[in-house]
Design a protein around this nucleic acid. Structure first.
Lengths: 195, 195
DNA sequence: CTTTGATTTGAACGATTGTTCAGTTAATCT
DNA sequence: AGATTAACTGAACAATCGTTCAAATCAAAG
């Protein structure tokens, strides 16, 4: 090797992903050109192909990294005892995690149709995996009789949609802190599942 | 006039909008070319410009028509007496209206960033108008003491997100009918607002 | 049948797209 | 200092983009 590892490539690589994440989130995958990404990084378009196979892989890698991180972060949490405690944890975790990375969340929800068939299936599987974390909690709560959930699958989708919706309107420095929002949403989630 | 009104232009015009709606919903505005739309209509790309000023107007007109129709349909409903009845109406109306036009809903939510600044402001104003219909119901319910809503604005966003979320998973001919889904969601909405 | 005007074609415009690659630059090694 | 090679440039590729417009086509009116 003629160059130390940890040189430019380990700086430019993350910069490429960061620029792509930002641009994809704000203008959409199809509306962003490789030259725009390169310009944001401070490099010519050709150089991007040292860090990604093609534009599609760039999108897919961003999405998979986000979903992996989501699942890992949830799994790393200490699991509390009762279904109700677990549900509260899930609600607060989901809001905080998603508010902390609005760009990645936006892409993961909006750019699914720009994935190739295989890539779509892979992301969809990860999403399903996350949804099942919540579904298991609701199922346990139903079995224990502490939640009134006539249809576990529907309740899962309803709760996730409600929580993810925070990203569409929350703005840093707004009227409410993340904690205040989480408090109120947790109340609504609890009510929605009849607990 | 050398040709009867109500001829080709009144057939091709709607076909253009229908094709654009379908293609934009499935592949995204930026990913769809005017030539693809024309091909779907059975016409050359140049002919589209007899029916739309440009691609941007095509998108904007679809969105505005959808939002206008949404507001008109809600206003046309007979208004029931109590806030709780009104909330139930809203929930069932929202689900049915949105499930009936999944393509238009998808576009109205996903393609906002592809609108020009002015067009975005116009659509956003219509959306805000719709949200306020729900917000007024919740505010009335809170004032009457029949709902437990610590923050009306948050509850509005939460309920709408939850209800619109149905579109992401509901499939015609699936496990549940629209009515069954509406029943369950109405229960969850009622619980979420503490009623 | 001829005229009229709505409707559409088909080609062309310049700009931009994702991607490739031979060649240049510069940092690190012996 | 000279050799090595990672990192990047800059130009080029064919394809496609939104849009325009003169010319062709068409159906109805006179």
């Amino acid at each position: 090797m003629a160059r130390k590892t940890g040189s430019h490539s380990e700086i430019t690589g993350p910069k490429v992903r960061a620029a792509a994440l930002n641009l994809f989130a704000h203008h959409g995958f199809a509306a962003v050109s490789m030259r725009q990404i390169a310009s944001e990084v401070g490099v010519q378009a050709g150089a991007l192909y040292l860090y990604t196979k093609d534009k599609q892989s760039l999108l897919f890698d961003l999405m998979r990294a986000h979903m992996d991180e989501l699942l890992a972060a949830w799994s790393a949490r200490p699991q509390r005892a009762t279904p109700l405690e677990q549900l509260e944890d899930f609600a607060r975790f989901h809001i905080q995690f998603h508010l902390d990375r609005p760009d990645a969340v936006f892409i993961a929800y909006m750019e699914l149709r720009n994935l190739s068939e295989d890539n779509f299936a892979a992301i969809e599987a990860l999403r399903r995996q996350y949804e099942q974390q919540l579904e298991q909690i609701l199922e346990a709560g139903r079995a224990a009789g502490v939640m009134s959930v006539p249809d576990t699958r529907l309740a899962t989708m309803a709760v996730i949609a409600m929580l993810t919706g925070v990203n569409t309107w929350y703005r840093e420095g707004g009227r409410l802190s993340q904690e205040a929002v989480a408090d109120i949403y947790w109340d609504m989630v609890r009510g929605a599942v009849g607990a």
